[in-house]
Design a protein around this nucleic acid. Structure first.
Lengths: 333, 333
DNA sequence: TTGATCTAGTAAAACGTTTTACGCCAAACC
DNA sequence: GGTTTGGCGTAAAACGTTTTACTAGATCAA
């Protein structure tokens, strides 16, 4: 069965292609097509099940009703949950999402942008990697909406949505101190991205504000992408050689490794050792004992991202940049 | 900066559009274009950063190098991990993936198929919902490759890849019995899909084969999509009123709810109560004590799916249907 | 009556490719 | 010397839409 084209509909209805097109696109009134013709054509369309070829449409109009979503890794639950929410909301507005994972690899990210570009996506939602600034700049000069999320590139002239990592980290440390903790460690990663740095700054500032000296030895920077076994060893060394009464993990996978390390050391989490993880995870709720965690406001982030991109898509001129910082929530368990 | 078209390249090189097109598509030799011209054009393309407009290309050729992936829910870790693997492998073969979640809703699934159709995707990878048979049949009569995975629609005349749910479930129950368990419960869902039914059948068969009578009261069917709080209540009721020494959860989210229920009841998992979860999850490894789980062979499933669809894409005629059943693995912890 | 305006609709160009069919020249053949 | 053949390349149609500019007739105002 050959798929129908607008021409088939036009022939069947005995009108021109133009007329059918006007009707499909809701411009019938405006173009003064008679009620009778509209009804007839609509009937034929319904009966035949005709669906416009979006490819042809895109070629002609230059837009696709597709938004490109570029994330680090769809199999990471933070991203997959955000993706799901974004997809949902976009869908309701008639936009589809194409997603792809960069694996935190600049080359792949660049390729993805190119691929999205040649598919003429209308806008981009990106959790950027370092080194991609130039490519994003090209999109912007091409007048394409770009929304960054999760990680900011502060020098980029575009919108950003993310959680307030500094505040969340600060608040976590504060909560430790309120419980009487003084020997507070931070386990973080050595990747050089803003949100990680902010978490580090929050940690330092909170300590100093409460009159506790910052001690370099209580901060463990785990090499990005290193083997988990090695990570666990490093943590075990930290936990067993230093005198520590609380620890903040700067990412949820670090926290998970940390829990494993503690399990191996047979150190119990509780009164003598408090733990907070950054980014919640099902593991933490179920763990015995439950682990406190900083919860990023996924729903709000997704909502804001979609709102910003839709605004930008429907506006002819570049809107003023918004950098939306949403508070994260410390869930004490 | 206007984006370049093939025409710009042709003008710059002083050749025709046709020539440029041949060169881009590697048909230069075959069409006897001289080495000199090829070099020149390639140089210009490289320097200018020209990228063909895929939309125009698709319109002309009728295919898109895009594979549509329709899954139940990208935020479910089983699907997001599969998606990631499929994406990866497809990417290496020059195919891109567009994905969308159906939320197990037939209407949404139908819409998605339509939307993919009008975007002319080359092939479909679908974890189907019931009620979608007709739409899939239309794709097939349209000669589009369709690979089903995770859930089979046995009456459909197309390829399928999935784990051997019957065997995995059977084996789990067997392992309980070997440990001396006799009062074995099953917590499952009431959705009427093959893989869930198979898990149920495996449970029953294993009991009977080992001379244990099947007892309806030990099977709890949780209503799909119901509130987690209610689910937990139902489980608590099961666990506290029945005398049970082992339980198999038919999905990982049920197992997670189940762990919460047990925690609330203060029932310890261990010698007097064994637990196996279907579909592994990070939670289970870290849980104290660790929870045994049935691990689906994600990597093999993804690999097989991709292999099948690529074969079908590169073959002119419909290949013989393959129904690939891959064993799942019980991880005893 | 004449020009203006309105109504109802259409023809054709354009979007950027791929591909078919053809053109032209030089060398080779008989 | 005429006809093939091969090498090198091009013109133009086609893919299925949207949109601009237009037409032909009817109505209206003066």
């Amino acid at each position: 069965m050959k798929t129908l084209s607008i021409k088939d509909i036009a022939v069947k209805a005995g009108v021109s292609i133009t007329t059918v097109s006007f009707i499909i696109n809701g411009k019938a009134k405006e173009k003064s097509i008679s009620e009778a013709v509209i009804k007839k054509v609509e009937k034929i369309i319904k009966e035949s099940g005709y669906k416009p070829n979006q490819i042809a449409r895109s070629l002609r109009t230059g837009n696709s009703n597709i938004i490109g979503l570029i994330i680090e890794d769809i199999s990471n639950s933070f991203f997959s949950r955000i993706a799901r929410l974004i997809e949902d909301k976009a869908y309701k507005k008639g936009y589809k999402i194409i997603y792809s994972s960069t694996e935190n690899n600049v080359e792949k990210a660049k390729e993805l942008i190119n691929m999205f570009k040649s598919r003429k996506v209308d806008g981009y939602i990106i959790s950027p990697t370092k080194g991609i600034e130039e490519d994003i700049q090209m999109l912007l000069s091409d007048n394409k909406p770009v929304i960054l999320f999760d990680r900011n590139l502060s020098e980029m002239d575009t919108h950003y949505v993310g959680a307030d990592h500094f505040q969340a980290s600060y608040q976590s440390i504060e909560s430790f101190i309120k419980k009487g903790k003084r020997k507070i460690a931070l386990v973080t990663t050595d990747i050089d991205v803003e949100q990680i740095i902010e978490r580090f700054e929050g940690y330092k500032k909170a300590l100093v504000d409460q009159g506790i000296a910052y001690n370099d030895e209580l901060v463990l920077k785990i090499h990005f992408n290193q083997d988990e076994a090695e990570t666990i060893e490093q943590m075990k060394s930290l936990f067993s050689t230093k005198d520590i009464d609380a620890v903040l993990f700067a990412t949820n996978y670090l926290a998970i490794s940390g829990l494993k390390a503690l399990k191996q050391l047979n150190k119990k989490i509780g009164d003598e050792l408090s733990v907070i993880a950054y980014d919640d995870h099902e593991v933490f709720e179920l763990h015995t004992p439950s682990i406190s965690a900083v919860q990023q406001p996924l729903e709000e982030i997704a909502e804001t991202v979609i709102q910003l991109i839709l605004n930008q898509l429907s506006s002819k001129n570049k809107l003023e940049n918004q950098k939306v910082i949403i508070p994260a929530k410390l869930i004490e368990r």
